[in-house]
Design a protein around this nucleic acid. Structure first.
Length: 371
DNA sequence: GGGCAAGAACATCGATATAA
DNA sequence: TTATATCGATGTTCTTGCCC
């Protein structure tokens, strides 16, 4: 474990060292960078071999409905369904690879979200206190009408009382029940916010890794979410056209070789077409007359989507120069779970892993470092 | 019947523009 | 300066249809 365990939201010092602006936007860029700097300050030099471990410690999370490391859509991972077996296999593999007991994995991962939500809880508490007077004013005209209080949920309260009744000396007060219901909804609601961190948080994490591997950082100029025309060799868009942005870009300081990177924690099949149209736009704005590399970095586990990313083509060559998984050993472990039938997608993806077409973060970073 | 793929809808946020 | 509206982006969840 990189740092001592994070306290639960609302009871932590997670916002320590944060500026009020940063913690006001808990999932915003400034706060993400602050948390990444804090994480990496205790790590030292990053190596390609360790990079994937940092990604999982920072971003991988536990699906609370199964208690297992998240590797696929929650509904398909429920007990009894095929991906439950794969989730079990992945959970055990990732705990072993990170050097912790399977039951302790939750304490070693999800650093960014745990700290960001702690910041979020502080901000929410501050806002609630600030708005108390306003709430009183808003409710005042209806004071005698018995309107429900915010957070009131009789059904949830009856479930709580029904379950705990045999253990209670006396029934809890209405205020306590309402406070408990609010805490439960806040806890569940927090999980819905994860998606807002995973997207750009993945880009920031890859950028943080690249900039902390000396052999890469010393030889490349790195960009995170640059406008394309800010990257050498790409021109401004035509008038009235929206400027294009790319997730990450690297330019070798000597050879001027350019690499555009698309970072997607997971890939939705309906958005696969976006890869092609993005590349078309990038190619149109290329003005140096030189080829550029187009790389996909992902943590997708769906074999069909991984295979599709490896196989998608433009004209007569692969669309992606490299398709990079955080660690292909993860999907490999998941696919090895004894779940019949074994789909065609798994065989295709295994083939891509074995051939090296589906690379790992370690392999890709090692190649970059040796350029 | 169940798995899978694809499409659509949903929930949420940050960034930005505009209005008060 | 602050509040509000809009936009764009993202991952998750739900629904539907096809296939074995």
């Amino acid at each position: 474990m990189v740092e001592d365990q994070v306290a639960i939201p609302g009871q932590s010092d997670a916002a320590e060292g944060s500026t009020s602006e940063a913690s006001a936007r808990a999932f915003g860029e400034e706060n993400r960078v602050r948390l990444l700097n804090r994480y990496f300050s205790s790590v030292g030099t990053v190596t390609p071999e360790d990079a994937w471990r940092h990604v999982y410690r920072l971003l991988l999370w536990i699906d609370r409905t199964t208690g297992l490391a998240h590797c696929y859509e929650s509904d398909k991972c429920q007990p009894g369904r095929p991906w439950y077996a794969r989730s079990l296999a992945f959970h055990v593999w990732s705990a072993e690879a990170l050097g912790v007991a399977p039951g302790e994995l939750d304490k070693d991962i999800d650093y960014l979200f745990r700290h960001a939500t702690a910041d979020l809880a502080l901000v929410a508490a501050r806002n609630r206190a600030r708005l108390l007077d306003t709430v009183s004013l808003q409710r005042e005209p209806y004071q005698s009408m018995g309107l429900p209080q915010p957070g009131e949920d009789p059904e949830l309260e009856s479930i709580i009382i029904g379950m705990l009744d045999p253990f209670l000396a006396q029934p809890p007060s209405a205020t306590t029940l309402r406070a408990l219901a609010e805490r439960i909804y806040t806890h569940i609601g927090l999980e819905n916010k994860r998606k807002n961190l995973v997207g750009e948080g993945f880009e920031d994490t890859i950028y943080a890794l690249l900039s902390r591997i000396p052999a890469i950082a010393d030889t490349h100029t790195l960009y995170v979410r640059p406008l394309l025309h800010e990257v050498p060799g790409f021109r401004n868009p035509r008038a009235n056209s929206k400027p294009r942005q790319v997730d990450l870009a690297l330019v070798h300081n000597v050879t001027r070789k350019r690499t555009l990177v698309s970072c997607k924690w997971s890939v939705r099949s309906d958005r696969e077409e976006q890869f092609v149209s993005d590349f078309r736009d990038y190619a149109e704005l290329e003005e140096a007359g030189e080829d550029f590399e187009y790389v996909l970095i992902t943590n997708e586990f769906d074999p069909a989507r991984l295979a599709a990313a490896c196989e998608v083509r433009r004209q007569n060559s692969p669309l992606f120069t490299s398709v990079v998984h955080v660690n292909p050993a993860g999907p490999h472990a998941a696919y090895a779970a004894p779940v019949p039938p074994r789909g065609k997608g798994i065989n295709r993806t295994q083939g891509h892993i074995e051939s090296g077409r589906l690379d790992g973060l370690e392999g890709w970073l090692t190649k970059l470092a040796s350029r």
